[in-house]
Structures are given as C-alpha cells and as structure tokens.
C-alpha cells in the first residue's frame, strides 16, 4: 500500500516521527500491531522493516510511526520528505489486550517502545482506568513523547540512566519504586522496549503476581506468518510460536523474551 508522508519530525538525535496517509484506509488497528515498511525500491536492503503503529486514526486513514535510526533501512526512511511516498503492508499481529475489569495499569516503555502506548494510554484513561506511565531513556534528551503522555491524563514518571531528569537509574528500578508506593498492586503491566528491559519488567511483574504483556522485537522476513523466521520459544515447552502472527504482544509467562 502506497502512503504519502504528511510530516516528518525529528524528536531527538537519531529518533523521528513520521506521519502517513495511506491511499486507502488500512482498516481497524489495535495498539501493539505493526506494519512492514519497504526501505526504497532496490533489492538491497531487501526485506521490509517492522514498525509498531504509534498514533493512528481508528479506521487506519492516518498513522504515525516513531522510528529510531538503527541501520540502513531506517536511515533511508529518515531522509524522506513531506509529500514522498512510502510503501507499507499491514497492520499485522496481535496488539495489547487489557480486560475491562483491570482498573490500574502500569505501562513501562523504553526508547521507541513508547510507540504502541501513544494511542493506548488516552484510550485506557477514557475508560476510567488509573494509568501509570513509566518512561525510560539514557538521557533526558532521549525521552520520547513526554509531552504527549503528560496530556494523555496518565500519571507520568520518567527515569534516565544518567539522572539528567526524573528518577536516576533504570526504568525497571523506577517501576520497583512505584510498586512500593502504590497502595494496591496494579492489575496489569504492559511493557515495550529493549529485550533486557522487558525481561526485567516481566520478572518484576511475575514476582508481584501482576499479569504482564510484552512486545517482542524478533527479526522478521515477512511479518505475516509465511517464513517462520521470527519465532519465539514457548516457555517450558519444546515449541515455537510466530511472533508476527501470534504476537508481537504476548503474556510474559508464555514466551522466552
């Protein structure tokens, strides 16, 4: 599907936000779902790159991506201009699913891991839930979308590895501190970010008996279940599941992160 770039905005060194209008609406999107984007017309780089859908219109008539320049593909995308075309397919996969009875939600995001929560946070707040967003980054300059979450009606806490803003340390340490502060444990934890961070969040959630959902970022060749390249190991079993189709969002107890 061809999309028109309607805006491209640098957020911090190496991070940008891309706003896209597809030629036809993509249809309903769930936060945590992703699209596969083509980085140029050549066969090198060959494969599409998976990107979480960040902000979007309910019918998929507009979508935003939050991109970190990680290599050649994302580098090419970062040089697009307003009015340029971008080829993507999707949305694919299973997003986050928060049961109606969950009242208190803790969201933990690192780096571009904030993307799936941009639309989810205001939605959960509008459902009357008590939402705590914990954002982590190396430095204050790399904290993404802080303003957005401030306006989303959630209680926001930030952590920086160098202590330049908010909590001085890892976002998982901040999570531990927040859990101590809360009168009752939250009903659910949602995490997205580097694998190490998600592993720590999942361990902490499990230790406190909090159901936790994580979004895996395995390498993908197709994104729609055809190559079997993206699989994750099912915990406690000798079996794999496709991350692109059964995930990328999983219950943390289900898979090895």
């Amino acid at each position: 599907m061809q999309c028109t770039v309607t805006s491209i905005q640098s957020l911090a060194a190496g991070f940008f936000h891309l706003s896209l209008t597809p030629e036809k609406p993509l249809g309903p999107i769930t936060p945590g779902q992703f699209v596969m984007i083509r980085c140029g017309e050549s066969t090198d780089p060959l494969l599409r790159r998976p990107m979480s859908v960040a902000d979007f219109e309910a019918d998929g008539s507009r979508l935003g991506l939050l991109v970190q320049i990680a290599g050649r593909g994302t580098g090419t995308i970062s040089r697009l201009d307003k009015g340029d075309q971008l080829d993507l397919i999707g949305p694919f996969g299973q997003g986050y699913s928060v049961p109606p009875e969950a009242r208190t939600i803790v969201i933990v995001a690192g780096g571009t891991g904030v993307a799936p929560f941009m639309t989810l946070t205001p939605t959960l707040v509008s459902q009357g839930k008590d939402v705590h967003v914990l954002l982590g980054a190396r430095t204050k300059e790399l904290l993404l979308m802080e303003e957005w979450f401030l306006h989303a009606g959630a209680s926001l806490h930030v952590a920086t590895d160098d202590g330049s803003k908010g909590f001085d340390g890892l976002v998982t340490a901040l999570m531990m501190e927040r859990l101590d502060h809360m009168e009752e444990p939250p009903d659910m934890a949602l995490a997205c970010g580097p694998a190490g961070m998600m592993r720590a969040v999942a361990a902490l959630a499990e230790h406190n008996n909090i159901p936790c959902q994580v979004s895996l970022e395995n390498s993908m060749a197709c994104g729609f279940g055809a190559c079997l390249g993206c699989v994750a190991h099912v915990r406690g079993e000798k079996r794999y599941v496709t991350v692109c189709r059964k995930g990328p969002v999983f219950d943390s107890r289900e898979v090895l992160i």
């Binding site: 060959l46 060749a221 993206c230 994750a232 079996r239």
Partner: peptide, 23 residues
C-alpha cells in the same frame, strides 16, 4: 517438526540466509 533455535534468519545483500530447520 519444531524447527531450529533462533535466530533463524539474517538479511544479506539482495538476499537472506535462513535456517528454519524444516518446521
């Protein structure tokens, strides 16, 4: 067949390597 452990794929110039393990 459950196939091979991960990582199973890797992009290469105008191609890719796969070791899916005949899952």
């Amino acid at each position: 067949r459950e196939g091979n452990p991960t990582p199973r794929i890797c992009e290469t110039p105008s191609g890719m390597l796969n070791a899916i393990g005949l899952q």
